[in-house]
């Protein structure tokens, strides 16, 4: 197991290093000269030169990359081009907000979709199964901004029970923010629901065919004991990976959701950074997002290994 963790950690570091190179290179290759973006079209050549030197843009690429990475690692994420403020506290705060939303989403989405998947599998090809798959597919077909707007229409304007805008102020606690989180969380849930439910359904059906299920039934266990005690334990193992992958979807889903609900998270910050061509900000956000995704995957791998004795005792 220790070997396994070590290997996974090594893997994680490698992934991160590689993405950091890519992120760095892409921002380098982006059309337009950074100095000109900052100083504007009218700037004189001398001013541009000075700024380039100041930013280190005239140094060799490798050196630039190493300095950038070193700074980033030591907590110096640079100054935003557009706001002129330090990037780190800014990004971290927005990240906190996003994580709050993501947590709530997963809290709703994971149990709900697993339950739906298991229900579907146990009623394979029967009415309930068909209803679940049709509805969940229909929902996932709708883009987030549509479902988001429909939800706002219903719950904010018609019923007037939840706020339409979720622009929470900095430092708001989870429970205080909860009413504002519900609608965006539901919208994001709908993105994940069908995917996780389908994969769960498939793996439960797969598991149900295995001979050990017969062994368990032949012990005279109740169907519910067979399902809970034997089948789910194995069927949900692959689901862990599925959830980790959907975390990636969630990150991209949040970009839209946060914009629809005007929620101050990392997704909206990203749109902002792109709008303003704020390169350092963009780099920081992307790196943070990748880190989050990679950590989720690592957690999933470890959990998978921990729950799977075939890996745990290898």
């Amino acid at each position: 197991m220790a070997k396994f963790i070590l290997r996974r950690l090594g893997f994680l570091l490698l992934t991160l290093l590689l993405t950091s190179v890519i992120i760095f290179l892409i921002t380098q290759l982006l059309p337009g000269d950074v100095a000109r973006i900052i100083l504007g079209r009218e700037a004189s050549e001398v001013a541009l030169q000075n700024l380039r030197r100041e930013l280190g843009l005239d140094r060799p690429l490798l050196l630039q990359y190493l300095t950038w990475l070193g700074n980033f690692l030591s907590g110096n994420w640079g100054i935003s081009f557009s706001t002129g403020q330090a990037i780190r506290p800014f990004v971290l705060e927005r990240l906190g907000n996003s994580l709050m939303l993501a947590e709530l989403t997963l809290l709703i989405a994971v149990p709900l979709s697993i339950a739906l998947g298991v229900l579907g599998a146990l009623n394979e090809e029967k009415l309930l199964d068909n209803i679940i798959s049709v509805v969940s597919l229909a929902v996932v077909g709708l883009p987030e901004f549509v479902t988001g707007l429909v939800l706002i229409q219903i719950f904010s304007f018609r019923l007037n029970v939840l706020p339409a805008s979720s622009s929470i102020r900095p430092g708001t606690g989870f429970f205080e923010a909860l009413p504002m989180l519900i609608l965006p969380a539901i919208t994001a849930t709908l993105v994940l629901l069908a995917y996780i439910a389908r994969m769960t359904r498939a793996s439960v059906i797969e598991e149900l065919k295995k001979p050990y299920v017969r062994t368990a039934s032949l012990k005279g266990l109740l169907p519910r004991q067979v399902i809970w005690g034997h089948v789910l334990r194995n069927a949900l193992l692959p689901t862990i990976t599925v959830v980790a992958i959907s975390f990636g979807w969630l990150i991209s889903g949040l970009i839209v959701v946060e914009n629809v609900f005007n929620y101050p998270g990392i997704g909206r910050l990203l749109t902002f950074a792109i709008d303003r061509r704020d390169l350092p900000l963009l780099q920081a956000i992307t790196l943070v997002a990748v880190l989050g995704f990679a950590l989720a995957n690592l957690a999933a791998d470890l959990l998978y290994a921990y729950l799977n004795p075939r890996i745990r005792f290898d």
Binding site: K210, P211, Y212, R214, T215, A216, G229, H230, R233, N234, L237, L307, N308, P309, R310
Partner: peptide
């Protein structure tokens, strides 16, 4: 082997 539950 397949008749035994792999994770118990």
């Amino acid at each position: 082997l397949p008749s035994l539950n792999p994770s118990l």
